[in-house]
Design a protein around this nucleic acid. Structure first.
Lengths: 136, 136
DNA sequence: ATGTATGCAAAACATTTGCACCTGG
DNA sequence: CCAGGTGCAAATGTTTTGCATACAT
């Protein structure tokens, strides 16, 4: 399983860590909040503290196992970083999150940064959208 | 001054509102946190509550007078929405914020959203950068 | 006058931390 | 065995809110 990923990250393979990984891996929502992960586990009869979920997620982020997003609306959401880089589109009506990737935008960003004397460390592109209403 | 903007937004012209607007207008930093605005006013000998600053900023945001950004790092920053749309680059070393605009990126975003059946309501593009280190 | 705004203190909220106890290797 | 992990409760930092008072129109 992912026990190996944990060991490689210098983290002991513990039950809370495996459980959090599993929720992230098996949930149909790819983007979950700490609270959401916590509730999913409680619902499954698992016992663990919310503080542990936060600690574990922060460690996973440092280890590169998950990516933390600060979308609008108060709380951060986390996704497994098992895919290649992509950006996000959040539907304001349904809350759906769609992932997309555009090489051209990526290149333009790098170019713009370098034109200003900077190199990109990280970037965040989020489109807040609404379904196209065909009838109006 | 901006008294008119306030009235047009359905907001009474009060001293705290004018003061907050003035700080945003005259500060050399275009992007300020609520706390930052509060401290700038205290430093000027002005008296007002932090809660009022938050309330005023939220009202200004609703009225379209300011834009709220949730850059990384806990607290929101606000900027006067007196310029045309632009995106941001935040230097992780100095905290500097650079504004930029790229027509091509804007167009690509619109196109990508529509390809997925959505229209863009709002979007946020932030590049977290670091100065290019010439010697390495 | 009267509907809004304000200040203050308290609440709310997501997240972090201190500490005593437990556990994986 | 012991460094590191966990749970709980308490602390944190930002933002919001309740309520009595003050102000703009």
């Amino acid at each position: 399983m992912e026990s190996k990923d944990l060991r490689e990250a210098g983290l002991k393979v513990t039950s809370p860590r495996l459980k959090v990984l599993e929720v992230l891996d098996s949930s149909e929502e790819r983007h979950l909040s700490a609270e959401g992960i916590y509730r999913a586990l409680l619902a499954n009869g698992e016992e663990l503290g919310l503080a542990t979920v936060y600690r574990v997620l922060t460690q996973f982020e440092r280890a590169g196992l998950v990516i933390r997003h600060n979308f609008e609306g108060g709380m951060a959401v986390f996704e497994l970083s098992d895919r290649t880089h992509h950006d996000h589109m959040v539907c304001l009506e349904t809350g759906d999150v769609v992932e997309f990737f555009d090489e051209q935008i990526e290149d333009l960003q790098t170019e713009i940064a370098s034109r200003h004397g900077y190199e990109i460390v990280d970037h965040s592109l989020v489109l807040y959208v609404r379904p196209i209403d065909k009838k109006q």
